[in-house]
Design a protein around this nucleic acid. Structure first.
Length: 426
RNA sequence: GGAGGUGUCGCCUAGUCCGGUCUAUGGCGCCCGCCUGCUAAGCGGGUUUGGGGCUUAAACCCCAUCGCGAGUUCAAAUCUCGCCACCUCCGCCA
């Protein structure tokens, strides 16, 4: 959630942020009114409670009539206190409910607009000219079948649409990518993590996925647990309700976990192959750092993402997303879009968000300084989303005969092999 | 899944049976000061967290906080109920 102090002292900033997100500006006025009401109720309660406590303390010392009189008076007060307390609770809850709807304050310089209003910051590498090479590129699904790497038919048979098996070389490729990603992360000072993929509602809510994003999340009714859509969720909740030693920051974690997404409302979108699926595995970077270092850290996360994509020799662009496309938690977001030859356009492969103190406030993650404790900043970034990365590798490095050249960085993790090669169908 | 036990302000701990100066005890650690040639020891004071008030600021004041929540009561760490986590044993299982 946003800082309540900012709401009180600079409501215009919150209004501007809401406008940049394309969200309700009136909400800010409702919030201010609710805050006022809540604080009034709290102070009325505290006054009454203090009076009640004071009288109550005299009872053990008194005796006889005096005692009876005191008890009668305190009894009346107790009734008032109960009512005042209920009122304060009610108004407090109303305020919180409103506050939770407000997205993070959009960072300065974020482009205005919605999904299509991103700004291309950089372009790296050259898309291959397949015409010049004399063949038509096959798409990842066809290549996956030729290589015996991806089986969507059996995925659908076993689990339904938007499920797949990675088979043979496909499964090996994921493991190689995992090892490359993790070893890169470890070299950069990250701590390797394998987090739970099922989490409690508090973890989901704290990371901001139970708002507008809720329809895209799997929920296990029976156990009231959620399947995470990203390791960001357990990695953020990992330090919830903790006070971190300021000297230990930044804490950098690289988590490998499955990601589950209902993909509600994406019917008919990217239905071919494994571009948009209900489950994929992912190595996610997650950082806790001092708020004043967050912007710089965000650049580092982006740099590590680029380093990884560079190593895979995939042409790509770096986009800065517009305010309307940030999600609830992010103050700023960069996506890397890799070149997809059969679609002749760039498609998302990684995403990194600076959530400033937004998630830390919800999850109660603080660090200690001379001035007491204060929320830390959290950031996340994709290091390697397996299915999308596999798609990019297959399509960009395919050869005329259906084999796929392996980028040099990946070879050590595939027994020195230089290419994935067609296998007989079975 | 079944039975039993435990949960107190960083860590350990007193208090819970029998509700009221508990405004939560003591130790360790940590911080400040004194003392000291230095260090150690010693002495004195401070040290949960969150919210609010008053201040230039600090000091100070108020409310909440004894795993979480609800209830009983004028009054709950203490009594009742529900939940959670951990430990021990049994059952089941990769």
């Amino acid at each position: 959630m946003i800082d309540v102090q900012v709401l009180r002292t600079d409501p215009d900033r919150v209004r501007a942020s809401q406008a940049a997100r394309g969200e309700s500006v009136e909400l800010v006025d409702q919030l201010l009114a609710a805050d006022e009401a809540r604080r009034g109720a709290i102070s009325r309660f505290e006054q009454l409670r203090a009076e009640q406590k004071d009288l109550g303390r005299q009872i053990p010392k008194a005796s006889g009539d005096e005692r009876a009189a005191l008890m009668a008076r305190t009894k009346d007060l107790a009734d008032l206190v109960k009512k005042a307390s209920a009122m304060a609770d009610e108004l407090g809850t109303a305020f919180s409910r409103l506050l939770e709807q407000v997205g993070n304050l959009v960072a300065d310089g974020v482009p205005e607009g919605g999904e299509d209003d991103y700004v291309v910051l950089e372009t790296h590498g050259e898309p291959r000219d397949f015409a010049a090479e004399g063949f038509e590129p096959k798409d990842h699904l066809e290549l996956g079948q030729i290589l015996g790497a991806i089986d969507v038919e059996r995925g659908a048979k076993v689990s339904g649409s938007r499920f797949y098996f990675l088979t043979g070389q496909g499964a090996e490729l994921e493991l190689a990518l995992l090892n490359l990603a993790m070893s890169t992360a470890l070299r950069n000072g990250f701590t390797a993590m394998i987090p739970p993929a099922l989490v409690k509602p508090s973890a989901m809510a704290g990371t901001g996925f139970l708002g507008q994003a809720a329809q895209d999340v799997y929920h296990l009714e029976e156990d009231d647990l959620y399947l995470v859509g990203t390791a960001e969720v357990p990695l953020a909740a990992y330090h919830s309700d903790e006070v971190l030693d300021a000297a230990s920051l930044p804490l950098r974690y690289a988590g490998y976990s499955p990601s589950y997404r209902r993909e509600a409302g994406s019917y008919g979108k990217d239905t071919r192959g494994i571009f948009r699926v209900h489950w994929f595995d992912k190595v996610e970077m997650f950082v806790y750092c001092a708020p004043e270092d967050a912007a710089e850290e965000h650049q580092r996360l982006l740099a590590w993402e680029k380093e990884f994509i560079d190593a895979l020799e995939i042409p790509y662009q770096v986009l800065e997303l517009a305010g309307g496309d940030l999600g609830l938690s992010a103050a700023r977001k960069y996506d890397c879009y890799g070149w997809l030859p059969t679609q002749t356009r760039y498609r998302e492969i990684t995403s990194t968000s600076n959530c400033t103190e937004f998630q830390a406030r919800r999850l109660n993650i603080r660090s200690r300084s001379e001035r007491g404790t204060s929320p830390v900043a959290t950031l996340n970034g994709t290091l390697c989303a397996m299915t999308r990365t596999i798609i990019m590798i297959l399509e960009n490095h395919q050869q005329a005969d259906g084999s796929v050249r392996l980028p040099a960085a990946l070879r050590p993790f595939l027994g020195g092999r230089e290419a994935l090669v067609p296998v007989p169908k079975r």
